[in-house]
Design a protein around this nucleic acid. Sequence first.
DNA 1: ATCCTGCATGTAATCGATTACAAGATAGAA
DNA 2: TTCTATCTTGTAATCGATTACATGCAGGAT
Lengths: 348, 348
Amino acid sequence: MEEIASRAPSIRDVAQAAGVSTATVSRTLTTPDVVSKSTREAVFAAIEATGYRVNLAARNLRKRETGAIAVLVPNLANPFFSRILAGIAEVMMEAELNVLIADTKPTAGGEHSFPEYVRQNHVDGIIVLDGKLRHEKLLDRGSPDIRAPMVFACEWIASIGRPVVTVDNQEASVRAVQHLLKLGHRKIGHICGPQENVLSSSRLEGALGAMQSVGLRMKPDWIYPGDFSLQSGAEAAKQWVRSDDRPTAVFAACDEMALGFMGELMRRKVRVPRDVSVVGFDDLEMAAHFVPALTTVHQPRATMGRAAARMLLERMRMRPEDRVAGPAPRIILPVKLAERESTAPPPG
Amino acid sequence: MEEIASRAPSIRDVAQAAGVSTATVSRTLTTPDVVSKSTREAVFAAIEATGYRVNLAARNLRKRETGAIAVLVPNLANPFFSRILAGIAEVMMEAELNVLIADTKPTAGGEHSFPEYVRQNHVDGIIVLDGKLRHEKLLDRGSPDIRAPMVFACEWIASIGRPVVTVDNQEASVRAVQHLLKLGHRKIGHICGPQENVLSSSRLEGALGAMQSVGLRMKPDWIYPGDFSLQSGAEAAKQWVRSDDRPTAVFAACDEMALGFMGELMRRKVRVPRDVSVVGFDDLEMAAHFVPALTTVHQPRATMGRAAARMLLERMRMRPEDRVAGPAPRIILPVKLAERESTAPPPG
DNA sequence: ATCCTGCATGTAATCGATTACAAGATAGAA
DNA sequence: TTCTATCTTGTAATCGATTACATGCAGGAT
């Protein structure tokens, strides 16, 4: 017996059905304690009867809010980000904010795509997981005081002073390399992340630093280029195989590359960890299921997402002028090394 | 020299700056051809000068639209969905619609979460990738004619007559099993997807049917329960190892389970494909990089996402009364079997 | 000169919810 | 009884953009 309505019921329909004014209906919804019990019940009954749903566009227009936050992800296809997103979504759902997810992966044109709703301030806040976006794009969003607050997570852009939630990439890399050193490796290589990425450089620096502090150097040949993809890990493996003077252990800047590296090696009958040890970074689900299971730096991905979300909520509650005052906060989450089967003492 | 404004510039500010009415500004933005060249230029200059951005809440309120569509994903952490999302995002960005992504994975409470913005008709359309949602939730969104159109992709709910974009899961499974039969396998097992899932049942049926059509049966012991996770694939492997009468080939309902299965087997010194052949379903990136590379049914994921998005756009343009008339369209995309290293003739 | 046509623009109503302010009702105090 | 305090409710302005309708003007036809 569903009634056919030409348009969705509005607050006026509810008001009429309950025999009150629209103001009372609105108050019943937003501040129930200021209306009398009897009217409250009448209004709720009318809402039930009419099937009324608040029109968010109208509410947002009036309240000068949008009720949504945006998350900019460098590459949705990379499983690394999904857990972080889940953490963000969890917190934001509780705060009754919608989450818009945008993949900023460069399109055919080569330019990083950038949704209009971010540029046009159509969100109340922004979480950026992409450290490669162009500065202007992120900052060209009107004058600072009407700009939606922004926080970085995982990656960040050093020249933009905004809060960051991340792990100590350098320290984590030091620990990964120290693990290899402790096993007796002296010839250690590194598969890098994409250039001009803060993660790539700090992980490389950490690795180099750990070597240096025990008086070792990393041969330039052992520093393989990469872009965080399985494919680039496989490329590094081909390069490793071709070489005369091979590292006995390789630390990859992410698990995907580590897995791609191991896969290609094993396909060429190189055994891990007997012939070469491999350490990754991230601890994807797959890392523990691969054979051999990958020794890797565990990142608390869901925790990072939740922390970034909470940080953003806090910034959204601040007055705009307070946001720019003082240094941007920085949350560094702890990491641990998950020691599994892909590392062992060097051969010979 | 950025000017400090207490609020974002509105269309009135632009109108004032350009010396025209708000109507003219609006027309310049939406139908530039009806305003004269000179005013058009003046308005654009004023927009530039004021840093004006359309207020979407106001526009949507007036136009009775929301400018967004929602995608309901069963589990964002599963890499299978990311490519589909990328396909959807690509088409929707072109159509200037925002994409809201919601993970419907059951929360601690056990109930599938369901964002308010879907329930409350705060989107112009919905793409559902989750076939396990409760019917009422999807349909309890007001009377049919004011309801946002909905299409299913990949998974669907048989009792809800809405357009579907998918592959022929049954046929694909038949082909996967035929491949094993052709190699000489007679004892073939299957790792199932979660119960009460259309994909699980049609893939199982396809497998059983292929066996049956050559006069073979699948022993109940060879039908392993699963839930599309790596872990459940590993569990199946433990079961396989324990058994006396083992299948010589196993067809898994998804790649994650196939990889989890192979990983656990190899960890127990069972060799793939020498001791047992494995076929997956989906063709994740990882499938080709695993060792051995996984033979699997390739799903055109990005294509599926794009097709679903275009289908939804089409439905959004239809008049509501036309949407309910006639049967819901159904797009079946072709699949192909990617034959790789995880399958070989049975041992002995 | 007069009228008509068509283009460019302005006026003002509208979308649906929120909220400052006013006003009415009720109860208790003096 | 009268006045005040408190609680509840209604009136109407407002948020910012869109658009139906009205108006004004230029140029051509008669």
